[in-house]
Nucleic acid binder design. Sequence first.
RNA 1: CCAGCCGGCCGGGUGGCCGCGACCGCGAGAGCCGAAAGGCUGCGGUCGAGGAAAGUCCGGGCUCCACGGAAAUACGGUGCCGGCUAAUUGCCGGCGGGGGCGACCCCAGGGAAAGUGCCACAGAGAGCAGACCGCCCCGCCUGCCAGACGGCCCCAUGUCGGGCCGUCUCGCCGGCGGGGUAAGGGUGAAAGGGUGGGGUAAGAGCCCACCGCGCGACCGGCAACGGGAGCGGCACGGCAAACCCCACCGGGAGCAAGACCGAAUAGGGACGACGCGCGGGGAAACCCGCAGGCUUUUCCGGCCCAGUCGUCCGGGUGGGUUGCGUCAGGCGUCCAGCAAUGGCCGCCGAAGAUGAAUGGCCACCGCGUUCCGCCGUCCGCAAGGGUGGCGGGGCCAUACAGAACCCGGCUUACAGGCCGGCUGGCACC
Length: 111
Amino acid sequence: MNRPPNRLRKRAEFLAVRAGEKRRGRLFLVEALYRGDDGAPRFGVTVTRKVGNAVVRNRIRRRLKEAMRVHAADDMAAGSDYVIVARRDVLAAPFSTLKAELVRRIRGTDR
RNA sequence: CCAGCCGGCCGGGUGGCCGCGACCGCGAGAGCCGAAAGGCUGCGGUCGAGGAAAGUCCGGGCUCCACGGAAAUACGGUGCCGGCUAAUUGCCGGCGGGGGCGACCCCAGGGAAAGUGCCACAGAGAGCAGACCGCCCCGCCUGCCAGACGGCCCCAUGUCGGGCCGUCUCGCCGGCGGGGUAAGGGUGAAAGGGUGGGGUAAGAGCCCACCGCGCGACCGGCAACGGGAGCGGCACGGCAAACCCCACCGGGAGCAAGACCGAAUAGGGACGACGCGCGGGGAAACCCGCAGGCUUUUCCGGCCCAGUCGUCCGGGUGGGUUGCGUCAGGCGUCCAGCAAUGGCCGCCGAAGAUGAAUGGCCACCGCGUUCCGCCGUCCGCAAGGGUGGCGGGGCCAUACAGAACCCGGCUUACAGGCCGGCUGGCACC
């Protein structure tokens, strides 16, 4: 549970996930795509420049990474990729709210 | 104590739990991902964002490209003088101008007497100077006042007084025409020096004194520049951030530079194997005719008609490695220098990511601010106020902002705070 999940590294990988299922939420949008194998799940974070300057974007990405690592990693389905498109509200939201929202959206497809 | 000026510095700390990246050591030499190149996985230690990492505005290193050297032209940049630096549009020290009582601050600060151009609006006139009002002179006209002369009339008949008319002269008001005048009004960012006196019809550097201005022998300074005997009645407006002239500097692109490793697939080349519809021309390339195929079918028209497989080679893309942090490096003593800076010696080693590490959560302390109480001190008759200390409570725990090849500058943003020097006031000794 403590090991951080694998990350998406290439722009092509992010673009591929855009074709998958989209789940909108108050704090962020989650895109999910089943790759077709049963390898480890991966995730990535997208924060556009519209959200804020570099400090703001870094902080949002780090909070989401930490929330994924600690609370939501085990909820991801094997063989699936997830992209979290963050909104500015992630910056000020309490950490407990953030992790609850993440768990809810990640589990969304599993049923 | 109050008000202010300048310079330098900091940009929360400690701890706990869970994580991330790089390097080094140990272990394993095994497994996993990948076609390959290559990458990942264990344990321990060390290190891990800023004063601006920002804007990407200058300068340099480094890399590649171009180029015989050099110079010139074009284009771009810079622009008081001297120094410093690898270098600059940077920094330091001076000079000049402007502001402030002062500490100090600000300045795109070469040439307008090489030339061209512009100076809107307003105003009479704007670089040729220029008469709108005003002032003055001359001429003419109307009116008024005064005087002189002449004529007529009144009566109290005067060496007196009064009235009317005409002519002339002086003055004044007004009008018209001609001329003088740049002192005044008015316009403007700017109106061809200022003040006073003389002078004049009125005025005017027309003349004089002082101030200003220009030229300037000579003196000081490396220079910018400063001082200045004497001379000149004054001529020369501003804009070069309009063109321009002068002096100096500059080849271009940038780490997505560049170097290396290196697939699948498509395409290129070499070799080999199999194959190439018929006829004519031609050495061949190729051309013509017929046959065949495609264009839904017929005609017409158009197009196609030699490759396929195997091995090897070379280039490029995705991907990966490198470039990549030991340097114009930091700190300190001493020396030279007003300083920027330079030199000697000693010590230290300090981020290296690439959808991009340096984090998440929490506790305590502390800074700040505000309120209450007590104590000291100063002002005050008092009420009250200023200031300092201690104790307690509340609030907040934070600004601007995230390395992306490196370095030196500049500019911009910034909660809160610390230190030093200086100036002007007030009080006390």
